[in-house]
Computed example of a mutant assay.
Amino acid sequence: MDDHEKQAELQKLKERVERLESEIEQPHATAPWQPTGYYTAYYATSGFMLGIFGAATSLLVNVISAPLVGKSPLELICVYLTFPLGEKALLLADQTQKVYTVSNGLILTIGCCLYLATGMLLGVPFYLALTRLTQNASTLMRYGVAAALSIVVWLINFYAILSWLQPALFGGNWIVELIPPWVAAVTHLVFGLTIAVLYPLGQFVPYQRPTEKS
Rank of each mutant, 00 (worst) to 15 (best):
D2C: 12
D3W: 07
E9Y: 04
Q11R: 13
K12T: 10
R16Q: 14
V17P: 06
R19D: 14
L20A: 09
P27N: 04
P27A: 04
T30C: 13
A31W: 05
P32M: 02
W33L: 02
T36W: 08
Y38W: 10
Y39I: 00
A41T: 05
Y42C: 01
Y43E: 03
T45D: 09
S46G: 01
F48V: 08
M49L: 10
G51A: 10
I52W: 13
F53C: 07
G54H: 02
A56F: 07
T57P: 08
L59P: 06
L59Q: 13
L60A: 06
L60V: 05
L60K: 04
A66R: 12
P67E: 01
G70N: 04
G70W: 01
G70C: 02
K71R: 14
P73V: 02
P73H: 06
E75F: 01
L76D: 04
L76V: 06
I77N: 13
V79F: 00
T82W: 00
P84I: 00
L85P: 13
L85N: 10
G86L: 04
K88T: 07
L91C: 11
L91K: 13
L92S: 03
L92R: 01
A93Y: 00
K98H: 06
V99T: 12
Y100V: 01
Y100P: 04
T101K: 14
T101F: 14
N104R: 02
G105C: 13
L106R: 11
L108N: 15
I110C: 05
C113V: 12
L116V: 08
L121C: 11
G123R: 04
L128A: 06
A129S: 10
T131P: 05
R132E: 10
R132N: 14
L133W: 12
L133Y: 11
Q135R: 15
L140E: 06
L140Y: 06
M141P: 14
R142T: 06
R142D: 03
G144D: 03
A146G: 00
A148C: 15
L149I: 02
S150P: 09
V152H: 10
V152C: 12
V153L: 15
L155I: 04
Y159V: 04
I161Q: 02
L162P: 04
W164I: 06
L165C: 03
Q166F: 01
Q166L: 06
P167H: 10
A168S: 11
F170Y: 12
F170H: 15
G171E: 04
G172C: 07
I175P: 08
I179Y: 07
P181A: 13
V183K: 15
A184V: 05
A185W: 08
V186R: 12
H188N: 01
G192W: 10
L193E: 02
T194G: 02
L198I: 03
P200H: 06
L201C: 09
L201A: 14
G202Q: 08
Q203T: 03
F204G: 00
Y207S: 05
Y207T: 04
T211A: 14
